[in-house]
């Protein structure tokens, strides 16, 4: 039993490591006018993602990203609070996604 346990745990960890290595990239994200925020010194800056980008990345982790047109602003506020907790999202993620959904519906 323990051999099997260790084997399967090793499989998951190996897949995790493989994907991390495969996805490692030296490319820096391309900043767009709407997705860039320069903060601090000339060399210290952070790439801010847009709500649309986060909507595509975050929602698809579990289900197909919802159509913004399917709900009104009030509904999106309720759904966003629900999903923030259910999917354990950061405040920044859900705030931006909610803003995008409300702007695009």
């Amino acid at each position: 039993m323990k051999t099997t346990t260790n084997f399967k745990a090793a499989i998951i960890l190996s897949v995790m490591a493989s994907i991390m290595v495969a996805c490692s990239s030296n490319k820096k994200p391309i900043a767009t006018d709407t997705a860039t925020e320069v903060a601090g010194s000339e060399v210290d800056f952070k790439i801010e993602k847009s709500g649309a980008q986060l909507w595509g990345e975050v929602c698809n982790r579990c289900h197909i990203a919802p159509s913004p047109a399917d709900y009104n602003d009030t509904d999106w506020e309720t759904i966003s609070l629900h999903m923030r907790v259910r999917a354990n999202l950061t405040e920044e993620e859900i705030t931006k996604i909610e803003s995008f959904l409300k702007s695009a519906n």
Binding site: I12, M16, I19, M20, C23, P29, E57, V58, R61
Partner: peptide, 8 residues
């Protein structure tokens, strides 16, 4: 990953 594509 910064694109949140992977979670373990």
């Amino acid at each position: 990953l910064s694109d949140s594509s992977m979670e373990w």
